[in-house]
Amino acid sequence: MPASRRRQLLLGGLVLVALALLDGVAEAHGVSRRDASFVESIRGAAIGPFLYLGAKHMVTGYDHLLFLIGVIFFLYRLKDVLLYVSLFTVGHSLTLLGGVLGGIHANAYLIDAIIGLSVVYKGFENINGFQSFFGWQPNTRLAVLVFGLFHGFGLATKLQELALTQDGLVTNIVSFNVGVEMGQMLALTFVLIGLTWWRTRPGFLRHAFMTNTLLMTGGFLLVGYQLSGYMLSVQ
């Protein structure tokens, strides 16, 4: 296959993924109403539906995706990608399972605001903000793990919005968690393909600064969106 044809196919694929993501955005983050009423009708263990809901939540969850894009933006070796993504996975699985099973009810707005902040943090780190301003860089692995914990609480609040029955609770939560990882792998694959191709372009480093600034913009927007939601809800 000639290179130009391959490139066309790749671009076509990327456009499709972008459209799918936009569709998810339009639906608003969280679990859609139709899915919610379905889940409420479930009694007992339902592995398939919860796997699907977990995967769907991740693939259409722009906050988690923005953070992951930031995390793997400058990771060139597959080994590093796997390490950082594993740290993120360990973090969010701990709090997803612990949060729902332990009945910890975090405020969804505040948790989502912190998730927005994690996006800002990653963008700022990627433009070398910590080194330039403070001459010091927080441990990047620890940061991914800690923010992973918050992302997990966010996932937990979304599950808690659904009235889960005690019957088959553990099976359903674990299924949701496994679904989240499957969705994450799916989304990451496409992000990695896109990034890898982009890095071969001459403009990559020049545009990297701008892209991470946009990432920060998205993060700030999420923080503002969630914080104002919080303030309106406690009024």
Binding site: V120, G123, F124, I127, N128, G129, S132, F133, F209, N212, T213, L214, M216, T217, G218, G219, F220, L221, V223, G224, Y225, S228
Partner: peptide, 19 residues
């Protein structure tokens, strides 16, 4: 530093306006 500060301030400003 100036470039990064500008980027951070710009990001916050654009996010604020969109919000």
């Amino acid at each position: 530093r100036a470039r990064i500060a500008l980027a951070a301030a710009g990001a916050m400003l654009v996010a604020g306006v969109l919000l």
